[in-house]
């Protein structure tokens, strides 16, 4: 049985100007240029986007879940980074 062996590309679409590109899925293609064209035909058939990024999946470096404890959790104890940490007089509390 034949294999496909085309590379997997992840697809990111900006749905409207002013918004971030958002991951929407992936596809198989032979080159970045083709991936971009296929992304147009496969992911924005209904004009869901104004801009597309494609990147070959193997080029993405992702955080690993095994590292979660050291990687994400140390962020938990810094409430002073959030606005809600600061209690101000009611009269200026919309700051």
């Amino acid at each position: 049985m034949s294999q496909e062996h085309l590379a997997v590309y992840e697809v990111f679409v900006r749905s409207a100007r002013g918004l971030d590109h958002k991951h929407v899925g992936s596809l198989h293609a032979e080159s970045p240029e083709h991936a971009l064209m296929y992304a147009r035909d496969c992911y924005i058939r209904r004009s869901e986007g104004v801009s597309i990024w494609v990147v070959e999946a193997k080029n993405i470096t992702a955080s690993q879940d095994e590292d979660l404890e050291n990687f994400v959790e140390p962020m938990d104890d810094k409430p002073y980074r959030h606005a809600t940490h600061y209690v101000l007089p009611d009269s200026v509390n919309n700051m």
Partner: peptide, 11 residues
């Protein structure tokens, strides 16, 4: 020949 191209040709 594969799904992506199938979809593209229909367009």
């Amino acid at each position: 020949p594969y799904l992506e191209e199938d979809i593209a040709l229909s367009n």
